[in-house]
Amino acid sequence: MKKIFTLFAISIFLLSCTGNDKFVLRGSVGKINKVMVVTKASDWNGDLGKEIRNSFGELMVGLPQPEPILSVSQIAPNGFGSMMKVNRNILIIGESDQEKFYIKKNVYAKPQTIIYVYGTDDASVIKMFKKYEKQILDAYIESDIEMTQGLFSSRKIDNANYKTLTNLGVSFTIPDNFKTVDDTGEFLWLRQHLTSGIAKTGSNNILVYSIPLIDEEKVGENIVSVRDSIGEKYIPGSDQETMHMITEEAYTPFTSEVKLAGKKAYETRGKWEVKNDFMAGPFVNYSVIDKKNNRVIVFEGFTYAPSVNKRAFLFELEAIGKSMQIK
């Protein structure tokens, strides 16, 4: 009887733990855009490691300094203990008895994304990684976007406080350290002063506005001219007569079609500068086609952070832009 009671008590305990993640999972650790790769040192130093580093190390478009999309580190399987298992983004890759690819969430910690890639030999492992390369990159980026949005949601601004957001019927998950520069009812400019290290003189900036939808087929090709006209009208330099923000003429922005707020949209990455001045930096622009209201809703985030890497700053702006909701 005592043995039965003990087994029953253990069963209840295990059920209560697995039924509620907060009793089981620790908080994950790890920097944004960082992936820990679990694989043998011989694989990491060979063709597989080279393939992974080349893939994750692809340079992010639009940044003035070369910065990879994702940073990677490696640990051997026998070193993948309890302390390592709480990393937020993990890639486990190596040989198995069959080819496999799958993604699991919140296995050892929360939030966490673990991707498993297996092949039957060295060539098979590389083939499987290359086959799912885009899906792997997208999964880690999406995971970090969601994590960043979750952090911001705990201290988000009240969108109803802004005339432009109210008039446009849009909302974003924007942290409350962004302050108003301009809010006309048609154009919103918010700014966050950077406070860390050498970037103290810099800022992250958000612009929100809309333009009429005249020709859907030409929205993508008109993004640069639209943002330049907005810069001339609303974003002056130190000399308001001769200086304003423009798209950097020496660098062609990269535009791709995406989906945002359930609608067709264009993501544009490039560099901005102030005409007749030395200020410059990267931007990410989302132009969302809202056919129902015959308009294009534009969110743009741009960073001014001289002398420091800017990937993390621009990623936060990307996360805010991708939180867009349209009423």
Rank of each mutant, 00 (worst) to 15 (best):
I52H: 05
P68K: 00
E51D: 11
Q98P: 15
I75N: 04
Q74E: 15
N78L: 03
P66A: 08
K40S: 13
E67S: 05
E58R: 12
I75Q: 08
G49M: 00
S55F: 01
R53I: 13
F56G: 03
A41F: 11
V38E: 05
M60P: 07
Q74C: 14
K50I: 12
N89Y: 06
M83R: 13
L63Q: 00
S73C: 04
T39E: 09
W44Y: 11
D97E: 13
D43R: 03
E99C: 08
G62C: 02
V72L: 07
K85Q: 14
K104H: 09
L91N: 04
G79V: 12
L48V: 03
G62T: 08
Q98T: 13
K105C: 07
K104M: 10
K105H: 12
S82E: 15
V86G: 02
Y102G: 03
L48K: 01
V35W: 07
D43P: 05
V72N: 09
K85A: 11
G46V: 04
K40F: 14
G62V: 00
I103F: 06
D43H: 08
L59W: 12
V72H: 06
P77N: 03
F80V: 06
V86H: 03
L63A: 00
D97A: 11
E99W: 02
V37L: 00
V61R: 04
F56Q: 04
K105N: 13
E51Y: 11
A41E: 15
M36T: 13
S96H: 10
K50A: 15
E51V: 11
E51H: 02
G57Y: 01
I90K: 00
N45C: 01
A76K: 11
V35G: 04
Q98A: 14
V86K: 10
D97S: 15
V61F: 13
W44M: 05
L91Y: 03
P66Y: 00
N87C: 00
P77F: 05
V37S: 00
V61K: 13
R88V: 05
N45V: 06
K50Q: 15
G81P: 07
I75M: 08
K50C: 13
S96E: 14
S96G: 15
I103W: 01
Q65G: 09
D97W: 11
E58N: 09
Y102Q: 07
G79D: 13
Q98K: 14
N89A: 09
E67V: 05
A41T: 14
M36Q: 10
S42C: 05
N45A: 10
L91W: 00
M83H: 10
K105L: 08
L63I: 01
S82V: 14
T39N: 06
K34W: 06
K104C: 03
V86S: 10
I103S: 04
M83Y: 10
S71C: 10
G49I: 01
V37W: 01
S71N: 10
N89L: 02
F80D: 03
K100P: 11
E99S: 09
V37E: 00
P64H: 05
S96P: 14
P77V: 09
W44H: 04
K105I: 07
P64A: 09
K34D: 08
G46N: 05
P68E: 00
G62P: 02
R53F: 03
V35A: 08
M84R: 15
V72F: 05
N87F: 00
N78G: 08
Q74N: 15
L59N: 09
E58H: 09
F101K: 02
K40L: 15
E99M: 06
Q74W: 09
F101L: 01
P77H: 07
